[in-house]
Design a protein around this nucleic acid. Structure first.
Lengths: 137, 137
DNA sequence: GTTGACCTTCGAGTTGCTCTAGGGTTTACG
DNA sequence: CGTAAACCCTAGAGCAACTCGAAGGTCAAC
């Protein structure tokens, strides 16, 4: 199949696939007589893996390593496992951070509502920002 | 004060501050006789605002807009409020997404553990990846 | 037989910075 | 007074992970 179909099956953009190939993350696929990239179902499953891995925010360098091991028929399990562990920790930290930010935003919009109520537009120059900088202490 | 002190007070790097200035996010500060940037406490509070806004992942374009309104003495409240609302929604979505990913990772590392147990290294070529691609359906 | 959808490559642009090179300045110490 | 460390300056390159545009080749249908 050509790149468009492979892209759709994998849930990626065609340009992203070309980019991954250029970056050495993906092996070069076959080509048709006219020079079009020609993907097999096996290729698509690799594409899909890359998409999944990227959606987990695993860096391309790590993905390249895993894909490389895979295509050379070696066991990427240990690599995958350590990457999984690392990513899990990263994601936990990220979630925690975002929850804190979310809470601050909620407070902020409360303050913003009050500021608007009490100040009625006119002289509201930067109260929200001031409160925000105060909150950042 | 010079850029290093301002940077420390605001919780930013000096290079980031220069970058913000170059990008027009921050107004150019005063200069000493020898050409060093010279920041006031008011400047630092703007820096701090930018840092806070960036930690909320608000894009520099939006921050520039808000800072711009502020320095022109206009009320950025409505802008700030709409940005806050938008960012809150973004963060909620992001948290949800990350929690899903986190769950998948947990499953994945379970599978990886089992795969290692049952397969003992040798022919473990890509079971984790296969499971992962299967899970991505 | 030509329109339109698809494919090709290459290079540049995006965002938000950091880093390097190659300088000048300020401060403190001996 | 000299000098070494720590600070500052600019300009430009580089980073991740892509996307977009230009300029063109190809394939299917009507």
């Amino acid at each position: 199949m050509r790149i468009g179909e492979a892209a759709e099956k994998a849930g990626l953009g065609a340009t992203a696939i070309r980019f991954y190939e250029k970056e050495g993350v993906l092996p070069a696929p076959g080509r048709t007589a006219s020079g079009y990239r020609d993907y097999t179902d096996a290729d698509v499953s690799v594409l899909r893996f890359v998409r999944r891995a990227r959606s987990l925010e695993i860096p391309l360098d790590d993905i390249r390593e895993i894909v490389d091991l895979r295509t050379r028929g070696q066991a990427p399990c240990d690599v995958v496992r350590s990457v999984i562990a690392r990513e899990a920790a990263t994601i936990d930290a990220r979630i925690e951070e975002l929850q804190m930010l979310r809470e601050e935003l909620a407070q902020l919009s409360e303050v913003a509502d009050k500021a608007v109520e009490t100040l009625q537009g006119g002289d509201c120059v930067c109260h929200i920002i001031d409160v925000e900088t105060a909150a950042s202490r």
